[in-house]
Design a protein around this nucleic acid. Structure first.
Length: 670
DNA sequence: GTGAGTAGTGTTTTT
DNA sequence: CACTACTCAC
């Protein structure tokens, strides 16, 4: 293995055999490289069996890339090596052990939309008259779970409030439906480790090295899990940067990285402070913003690179102006300066900012890709079919069943659904069970037409339930299901226009994309299971991978949120919407989490290697109305000398006396 | 039971 | 503005 190119700290980090290792790795300090080399080193030089190594990352994408690199370095295929998120690790273990908690191993994983749907139902039905927002409740429940606040504690903490009762009801219903949400994956896994020491030992016996990336973003639950997985014979290595902690809203505790040595004894700390990515101008600007934060580990990033280009600031009059400037500039960079589109990124605070940029880039015929936004997944038509698959997997999942019971229309409307639900809850049965007994038990309650509709629905479900869960399923299953469902006809009815079926075709394409995904899945698995397909969609974001495969050769400009940009790097970064209320976000100002907004800006700045653009609009549409906006209050924390205009003057002619004085003054005042 | 039309509501970030 | 939830005429 070639470790010659590493600097001394990196070398230490890769080869150290300390049981407890904390790597404080600044932005662009070669962190991923160190981690992958360390794993490869363990395998190659210490003969650690790959299956005894668990690497936990923040996204599956990062994990996939790391695995790719480890395999490259070791020159072997490593099927036993686990690299993935906390969630996917927990998922894997739960499939094996969850029966201990009274769940069926084919549980379904509820995504955000599912959760919100269920909560909406609970809020409406069990607590009528109260005005509670399902989305807000969802995030409150999630925060409770990730901070390890049990239902009982919630009752104590919020006495008299309705929230704990919803929390309680929600948990009950989920169990009844054999469903887990994202947080449950960690909670239930945790529960197993605590309640079943023999399982814990079994897992620990095959786990000698734990590595955790982005440690600054772990929450209490995840830290607890780590402590439970750790044992005296194992080693733990965590990598992180407190300045890049941007998930406090999900319960992440920067504290964890600051207090790491308290959790795991005899910790060795190594700092990686050389930045290999950015020009000193970019680092200086980023430092200007982050250094205003109290409570950070003192560190000084440095780079061997020169000053490079100054930061370009563009004050646009409105969002359209901003879009025109950015896309025009991108066009020029690609066509005049010959810069590859995939070296360029547009970063924004919130997803909805991407829309305008997409439209403009499409119009200018600049290739682009949007990262993050779940597009395909979120589309109603894809969701419909996916929900059917969930129903085949588990017909007693009422939420899913009710979503599709009348798609396409089968004359099972609100009234009927109400009656079904009522009898189901009365008899403590699932809606599907009620439908199955319908003819014998309730013929008086329903008209013959509806009974036959329900019967046909039941037969459809049962037929395809068998076909989809057969092992292996036929590759034709998907198509014949679509046909029998009449989904194309349904789309035509919904979206078709007299002389224009483009919308229908587009939507059907999405369905076909899903079919392709399914067929690829069938081919890739030895014994494909429907449940694995669905959970891999929910958890591993298979759709992202798919999207990237779709246009492999085509380099494209990347559009993404700052959050999903973490860990990535680009030569040229456009940070758009650098505005008060948007980059220190309005909500953050209220919750006094400005420090996190600074870190967010810091992450955004440090994604750039060569050149950074900051843009903001003086007026932006909000709720459909134009509103006056101001540049971000962080702007004044960027040293003047980082800016393009000053620097250009420096390059062209010697400094005038007043400018030299101004520069000196700004330096002294720091 | 369906679908068009309207009134009300809400917008951070993600596994 | 965009999305939903609800009303009312068929």
């Amino acid at each position: 293995m070639n470790l010659n190119t590493l600097n001394p700290q990196q070398y230490e980090a890769v080869t150290s055999s300390d049981k407890s290792l904390l790597l404080l790795a600044g932005a662009g300090s070669g962190k991923t490289r160190v981690i992958t080399l360390r794993i490869a080193y363990l395998i190659r030089e210490h003969q650690v069996p790959p299956s005894h190594i668990v690497g936990l990352t923040f996204t599956n994408k990062a994990a996939a890339e790391m695995k790719e690199r480890v395999q490259q370095i070791t020159g072997t295929h490593l099927p036993g090596l686990f690299l993935g998120t906390f969630h996917s690790y927990a998922l894997r273990k739960l499939r094996r052990y969850i029966h201990l908690l009274g769940f069926n191993r084919h549980f379904v994983v509820y995504d955000e939309t599912d959760v919100r749907g269920l909560l909406r139902r609970i809020c409406r039905e069990d607590f009528p008259g109260k005005k509670v927002s399902p989305a807000q409740t969802a995030s409150r429940i999630s925060l409770c779970k990730n901070s390890m606040i049990s239902i009982r504690k919630a009752f104590e903490q919020y006495p008299g409030e309705i929230f704990p009762r919803i929390y309680h009801e929600y948990t009950q219903t989920m169990k009844q439906m054999n469903a887990l949400d994202f947080d449950d994956l960690l909670i239930r896994f945790n529960e197993i480790l605590v309640r079943f020491p023999e399982v814990r030992q079994e897992i620990q016996a095959h786990l000698s090295h734990i590595l955790v990336d982005e440690f600054q973003d772990t929450n209490d639950l995840q830290l607890f899990l780590l402590k439970k997985l750790f044992h005296p014979q194992s080693s733990i290595c965590v990598v992180g940067d407190d300045d890049q902690s941007i998930y406090a809203w999900r319960g992440a505790q920067v504290r964890h990285i600051l207090e790491f040595q308290r959790y795991f004894k005899d910790t060795r700390t190594i700092r990686l402070e050389q930045n290999y990515r950015s020009t000193s101008t970019i680092l200086q600007a980023a430092h200007g913003i982050i250094s205003k934060n109290r409570l950070r580990t003192p560190k000084k990033l440095w780079t061997a690179k020169g000053r490079g280009k100054g930061i370009t600031v563009f004050p646009a009059c409105d969002e359209e102006d901003e879009v025109q400037f950015v896309t025009g500039e991108i066009n020029a960079l690609i066509n005049s300066d010959n810069i590859s589109p995939d070296r360029i990124a547009v970063l924004y605070r919130s997803n909805n900012q991407s829309r305008h940029f997409e439209a403009a880039l499409r119009k200018k015929r600049v290739p682009y890709r949007v990262l993050g936004g779940k597009e395909l997944f979120d589309r109603a038509e894809v969701k419909d079919i996916l929900t059917y698959l969930k129903v085949f997997l588990n017909p007693h999942d009422d939420n899913s069943l009710l979503r599709v019971i009348n798609v396409p229309q089968r004359f099972i409307g609100k009234k009927t659904v109400e009656k079904l639900r009522h009898t189901a809850s009365q008899q403590k049965k699932s809606v599907f069970q009620v439908i199955c007994q319908l003819e014998s038990l309730f013929e008086d309650d329903f008209s013959p037409a509806i009974i036959s509709s329900l019967g046909r629905f039941q037969k459809l479900i049962e037929k395809y339930r068998k076909l989809f869960t057969a092992s292996p399923p036929s590759s034709e299953v998907f198509s014949s299901f679509l046909n029998e469902l009449g989904y194309y006809e349904y789309l035509t009815k919904m979206y078709g226009k007299k002389d224009n079926n483009a919308e229908v075709e587009k939507r059907y394409e999405n369905i076909l994309a899903l079919r392709k995904l399914y067929e690829d899945f069938l081919k890739s698995q030895v014994s494909p299971r429907l449940s694995d397909f669905i959970t891999s969609l929910a958890i591993d974001n298979l759709l992202d991978k798919k999207k990237e495969k779709k246009d492999p050769g085509q380099p494209a400009v990347t559009l993404l949120t700052i959050h999903s940009a973490k860990g990535l790097e680009f030569d040229i970064v456009f940070l758009v919407g650098f505005e008060e209320g948007l980059l220190p976000h309005k909500n953050a100002l209220e919750k006094q989490s400005i420090a996190e907004e600074r870190r967010l800006s810091y992450v955004a700045f440090t994604r750039a290697g060569k050149k950074l653009y900051l843009t903001y609009a003086k007026s932006r549409k909000r709720y459909g109305k134009n509103r006056k906006t101001e540049v971000s209050s962080f702007f004044s924390d960027i040293p003047d000398e980082c800016m393009q205009s000053l620097q250009e003057e420096n390059d062209e002619e010697p400094l005038s006396l007043t400018e030299a004085w101004k520069k000196l003054e700004s330096r002294l005042s720091k």
